[in-house]
Write a protein that binds this DNA or RNA. Structure first.
Length: 474
RNA sequence: GUGACUAUCGUUCAAUGGUAGGACAAUGGUUUGUGGUACCAUGAAUCAGGGUUCGAUUCCCUGUAGUCACCCCA
């Protein structure tokens, strides 16, 4: 709800005065200097109260959604035998260029790259797998019983133009399995992904799968595709003509009618698969059928990272208008570990876009996680009672009673108002009189009745009321 | 990275070339030790900088941010 946190620049409290003091002559010189103002160029007295573009605060209001997602992720990870791993947000640039591929958009134009004071060229991770693969090799995890299953959650960074569901800092949940090449792992991976989105209560989920083979067969396929498209170059849209040079596979998912028509007869990647990949894919599909998972084969599915081999898949969600959102994706990357300098190790994994998942949860009105709400309110009146209530609070809390208070407020009336708004069942009132003889008033907020109990009996009395309320409800 | 649209209290919606109004929320109160309704009061905003103008929140330019489309992706 609180999406529009864009208050621009705020300058302490001098805001109003600066406006009125009208010093236009000074600012004239300023103007020429300002061309493309880097945001960071504000003078030092000015505080720029604004999150960086494409980055946002996840405010308390939104946390229940995140909590639910985190819980589902870690449960699923546990059920499928994944262990948590956390790797640094920053890695050597080289790690990413070598794994993701230095021709890809992610590396070419979306990475946050910088140099440290020591001169190292580093980058904010644009995805998880590279760093996890690095950790896998660095810590000799190849000797662990296979498959090695690793799971991670955290922010990743891509310098892209933000829009809804697309941020420069966004969160991913990531699952990877190392050391097993059997296609049943592919099926299990997809099953796990399905399990997660299902447990999150998302509907209208669709899986798209494809196989892109091994690098050799892929190269051959790209050549054939290019040959086909070049021959029809004139009939393609301008955009696709550019794509012929940059990324011919992308022509396959162009939205222009003429391109769609043209590409229906284009060579398909599946036809160019090597025998092993073909067999692998066939068996995967058999497993998926066995699992009764909803999937479609999308021969145009290409992923944006170079390290994928054989199986690739994506998770899509569609809204009422039929608009589709990619919630995550993954695939097999049998060559990655070796290409980074480790022992040849087959692997498969996938990532989920948490921000998009939460957007989707809101869109489809999935209930967020609810923290237990306090059912007891502690109200105090007078200095002495205030002092005592502080101790009472911790005493009750130690006995497992979750309670709210509003110590800062003076009048009993306003405290009760708060108590009522919080929807508590019981309010404990300690006034001057009660503080003196170590008692407290217990007010049942539903019936309005109240009784006075001694401090010793307080905990039990509160529990008793809560319990009987519970019985009434259930 | 390209193009388009938008920008008002915490939220949401008004209005105007002569310094902004409501609703919700917040805070306090309606005889000082008792909640939900009601009533009253209070605080709170024109994204930033510049230009045009006697005067701009309103018109123009630039920046910033958001949204959308593209690119691409999660």
């Amino acid at each position: 709800m609180a999406q529009k946190m864009k208050k621009g620049v705020v300058r302490d409290s001098k805001k109003k005065t600066t406006k009125k003091t009208d010093v236009s002559k000074v600012s004239v010189t300023k103007k020429t200097a300002v061309k493309k103002t880097p945001v960071a160029n504000v003078s030092q007295e000015e505080v720029l109260l604004q999150a960086l573009r494409g980055m946002r605060d996840i405010l308390p209001d939104e946390q229940p959604y995140w909590e639910r997602v985190r819980k589902v992720l870690s449960h699923a990870a546990q059920e499928y035998g994944f262990q948590r791993i956390d790797t640094p947000l920053v890695e050597f640039v080289h790690l990413f260029t070598r794994s993701i591929g230095n021709q890809t958009d992610i590396v070419e134009k979306e990475m946050y790259t910088f140099q440290t004071r020591g001169g190292d060229k580093v980058a904010l991770r644009p995805e998880f797998t590279a760093g996890i693969a690095r950790a896998f090799i660095e810590h000799g995890m190849g000797v662990l019983p296979k498959p090695v299953k690793l799971f991670s959650v955290g922010p990743v960074y891509r310098y892209d133009r933000p829009q809804e569901g697309r941020y420069r800092e966004f969160w991913q949940g990531n699952f990877d399995m190392f050391g097993e090449s059997d296609p049943i792992l592919d099926a299990q991976t997809i099953q796990l992904a399905y399990r997660v989105v299902q447990q999150l209560g998302l509907k209208n989920i669709e899986f798209q799968v494809n196989s892109i083979g091994v690098p050799d067969s892929r190269r051959e396929y790209t050549k054939a595709l290019l040959r086909y498209l070049e021959a029809q170059r004139g009939k393609l849209c301008q955009n696709c003509r550019d794509r012929l040079v940059t990324n011919p596979m992308r022509v396959l998912d162009c939205k222009e009618d003429k391109c769609i028509q043209l590409t229906t007869h284009a060579p398909q990647s599946l036809d160019y698969l090597d025998q092993e990949s073909r067999d692998h894919f066939k068996r995967l599909l058999e497993y998926l059928d066995e699992l009764e998972l909803p999937y479609t084969i999308n021969t145009r599915l290409v992923r944006g990272l170079d390290y994928y081999t054989k199986t690739v898949f994506e998770i899509w969600s569609s809204d009422k208008e039929g608009k589709k959102y990619s919630l995550g994706g993954g695939g097999r990357y049998d060559g990655l570990i070796e290409s980074l300098g480790g022992e040849p190790t087959p692997a498969i994994g996938f990532g989920l876009g948490l921000d998009r998942i939460i957007l989707e949860m809101k869109r489809t009105q999935v209930k967020p996680y609810q923290e237990a709400k306090p059912k007891v309110f502690l109200a105090q009146l007078g200095d002495m009672a205030k002092k005592k209530s502080l101790r009472l609070f911790s005493e009750l809390e130690k006995n497992g009673i979750l309670l709210a208070e509003s110590f800062g407020r003076g009048s009993l009336k306003s405290q009760l108002r708060v108590a009522n708004r919080l929807g508590v069942e019981v309010t404990i009132i300690v006034g001057q009189k009660e503080a003196l003889d170590d008692t407290a008033i217990l007010k049942d907020m539903v019936s309005g009745t109240q009784e006075t109990v001694t401090h010793e009996r307080l905990v039990d009395a509160v529990k008793k009321i809560l319990k009987s309320n519970q019985l009434l409800q259930g």
